[in-house]
Design a protein around this nucleic acid. Sequence first.
DNA 1: TTGTAAGCGTTATCAC
DNA 2: GTGATAACGCTTACAA
Lengths: 344, 344
Amino acid sequence: MDSTDIAKIAGVSRSTVSRVINNYANVPEQTREKVMKVIKEYNYVPHASARSLVKKKSQTIGLFIIDVHEKMHPGIYNNTYFSPFTASVIDYANRKNYFVLTFSVYRYDELRKVLDIFREGRVDAGIFIGVKNGEESLQKIINEGYKIAIVDYEITGIETAKNALVINADNEGGAYKATTYLIKNGHKSIAHIAGDLKKLSGIQRINGYRRALQEAGLEYKDELIFYGDFDAESGYKAAKEIANISPMPTAVFAANDSMAMGAMEAFKEDGIKIPDDISIVGFDDIELASYVHPPLTTVRVFLHKMAMLATNRIVDLIDSGTTNCHHDIVAVELVERASVRALR
Amino acid sequence: MDSTDIAKIAGVSRSTVSRVINNYANVPEQTREKVMKVIKEYNYVPHASARSLVKKKSQTIGLFIIDVHEKMHPGIYNNTYFSPFTASVIDYANRKNYFVLTFSVYRYDELRKVLDIFREGRVDAGIFIGVKNGEESLQKIINEGYKIAIVDYEITGIETAKNALVINADNEGGAYKATTYLIKNGHKSIAHIAGDLKKLSGIQRINGYRRALQEAGLEYKDELIFYGDFDAESGYKAAKEIANISPMPTAVFAANDSMAMGAMEAFKEDGIKIPDDISIVGFDDIELASYVHPPLTTVRVFLHKMAMLATNRIVDLIDSGTTNCHHDIVAVELVERASVRALR
DNA sequence: TTGTAAGCGTTATCAC
DNA sequence: GTGATAACGCTTACAA
């Protein structure tokens, strides 16, 4: 059942069918109804490929979840972290009549294949999350002029990036808040479990920690920084080391909740009580954070809001063609739970 | 940069370029190399729409997450439950060179739009999860002959469904195991918080509960059945009612973990200790289950395995064209944690 | 207002 | 082996 058939049955030409389908102004109500009746009757829908071939528009946006881990447990993809982001992107895109093609990238070399997806014309734009800062394959995509929105990223070479926009959480501010919160609670020796410093959020969070210390007149000590990778296991390892410091720091600021939870587990194993013996603050406020014991004090990131911004902005970019290169910074908020103790 | 350009530069015809791209046998190594060189040099990739137009194949499968709730908190999509399923589908599909178009359906009437996605030729096949049993819109899709795999569903009218396959967890067996486990632990008065009985899993789980009771010679009592909808809130409400029964049942089998956790919260509020005062078993083994206190004893469903089966089966169906209508039942396993107490 | 015809970028058929 | 040529199903000038 294609437009030719519909045209024949309705007694008009293919062009007229097309005009009706596309809601052209210059078709009289009478013919419109006549054609619509046949369209409804035969459940005619224009073929997507034929349409995008001529319109040069696929009406779909690509969602690229980059989830690379040092050691990959093959077959186990537990990136529940991206779940609210993904769900929101799909929802907002669908609302604006866009389809979403989702990809998971588990190794950086797979990112090269992503470029071809754009070249094939399979997507009109892309949304990226989880990319390490300055990633070469991504820069290539930007340089070829494809429209993309990136979460947790910093675009270099701004003049070439007329079609790239960026959405970040206020990582620096959040880390500052978290650390300051610990300081206000009387903590003076605060360790930091840093995240993956190849990611913008990793860098910004350690910076916020540092600034809070400095502004409070506390010394930033290298031996209190533990380099993780945002995974729980690295938080666990860091905590094992922290437990061996004497005197032990009274508090830990972890760059995300997963590492905070890994650390909690390690402390628990060693008989170190939270928050009695050590306080801990995380970042992200993932679903689990409120379920662990004690419930984790953390910095809430509004991933769904970031998804909304990314999607709406990129759709605007496609639809309007404007090269209004945005950089959004989404506010975060400290959520106090029970993993921090006030000293003295 | 299209095939015409490549052809011109390489000094051959479009047909030859096509033959090279598609790895046809009858092109000599020399021309192949000559053409490939140009293709590489100009990063030529065939246009997806043009290709699927003529091949009548989009090389993408649709993933439809049906997530309808009675009362929808607008804008908040917390379906972390589907996350491992989604991630696995995408991964397995990508491995077999398929793309995945994902949709979330939050209201049943939106399901009608899904049919058009098939008609548009946007997807070669679809995978559905979360549909209520016998859903009309889905039956329509099946009847029009589209290739689909459904999770948690029962296909009626088997002769018309040559292209539909089904993947289910062993819900009945799992519920039987869970209930029997409680019985073996000395429980005789076991309440059941049923799930959404419009879903196959809801029905099968209550059936397994019933069979376990019967085989143990225990009476199935209507007043011990509480009708929920798989959401935490309904579990919470059920527990509030259970707490008022006297004598209170010594155990509860909830048809999923969310309801079990809702129930735990309610019991906690009422000062009812788990497992001291009441034992509880859930179903699914979602990530949270091991983090709540006490850690929840539950029945593990291998969603990623079901995703793998669904994806591989549907890809086979597309590629081979065979109408080998499968019905898989994926085994489940009881995971003992700390929410059940042995009586006496 | 409507129809004819060209074109979107491929692949498939058929000669040569 | 390779190159015309005709589809694939649609939109869009252009003509009428």
